[in-house]
Design a protein around this nucleic acid. Structure first.
Lengths: 188, 188
DNA sequence: ACTTCGAACTTTATCTTTGAAGTCTTCGGT
DNA sequence: ACCGAAGACTTCAAAGATAAAGTTCGAAGT
């Protein structure tokens, strides 16, 4: 059957390619630099694909992507692998309530422990277990293979340049959004 | 360095900087190219920040980020701005059930209409309303300003190079994940 | 024409996250 | 010492997403 009127060449089957999407932006919104849109669209798609890939890997290890994020934050915090719920929440961009529930699950799965801080009894300490650390290591091994494979086609110079440019962009957004863990309440 | 044992220099206050995070990866997982990790971490952070920014803009217009995604898909589909729920779901990486509910809300808000396809009565057609198109345009105006500002520091050559490299990376993931709208059921 | 298969969407139950209120501890002023 | 305010976490109700089963219609084989 011919195309549904109004389509740029795809059946109504699936996601348009990046090129088709850029063309569509030009068609629907002329005040837009195609170069800019190409970068932004590619960034966003790339991220989605990467998250799907991470999701496959973590679920193969019996944990969820959400749990992996918590393990990551704890490991990266260093040595005794302990953080408070509110700190974790800030790092992951979640509300404190969500953090409470997520920790609940992870405690029952044996990935972390939760205890009250004896010196400061309002505070709670979440600590990585050996099993949790082991899971993170396994996930990291998979992730590093995937990441290396992703960048395989880039020369060392290209990698350096890409890292530098992305860092520059990141700095720019972070300066514009001082805190912004994910809440946007401070919107004046 | 006389820091709290286990911390790389931050109090337990907030999110570590990108540089601190790279250093932590080196400390905790040596089999990792810091260059690779820098790129991947910056990509992921950049995306989170951008989504926060988009969220502020869309909520200022009285719609959610989720609704904006639907409007975007419809507009980009071209001319009569019609798509079926399952096609929309594929493009947004959602399950069909989520799509049904999201369309429900958007219909009551007047952003889209839902009707049965008369020639194919199993099918449903979701069509953008004038108001929906108007909302998308307003959001686009805000977004394009933000995006242009984000890339302000990049020279034309750098923009070209960045677009090219990201496209190359995207192609690589997409080749590795043929379909993958977001479901990972076909994992055999 | 009848039946069966399959596709497109919806419904139901469950899980996760959010926002708002609630509890408990600490700190600072009187 | 006492009292009130602020902070850290939890609980509760409600929104949004997923998974699995259910419905309905069209198409293909007999």
């Amino acid at each position: 059957m011919g195309d549904t009127p109004g389509n740029t060449g795809m059946g109504s089957g699936g996601e348009p390619t990046l090129e088709e999407q850029i063309a569509a932006y030009q068609r629907e919104f002329q005040d837009l630099d195609p170069q800019v849109e190409k970068i932004v669209s590619a960034l966003s798609r790339l991220n989605r694909r990467m998250n799907v890939a991470y999701g496959r890997q973590t679920s193969a290890l019996g944990i969820s992507n959400a749990e992996w994020e918590v393990l990551k934050a704890l490991v990266l915090s260093g040595a005794p692998y302990r953080l408070g719920p509110s700190d974790l929440a800030k790092r992951l961009g979640l509300t404190p309530a969500a953090m409470t529930h997520r920790i609940d699950r992870m405690v029952t799965e044996g990935l972390v422990t939760r205890e009250r801080d004896e010196s400061n009894r309002v505070r709670v300490i979440v600590e990585l277990t050996g099993e949790g650390r082991e899971k993170w290591l396994e996930a990291m091994r998979l992730a590093s293979v995937f990441e290396e494979d992703l960048l395989q086609d880039l020369s060392p110079d290209e990698r350096t340049a890409l890292g530098e440019v992305l860092t520059r962009l990141l700095r720019r957004v972070e300066d514009a959004q001082p805190d912004a863990g994910g809440r946007l309440s401070d919107l004046d």
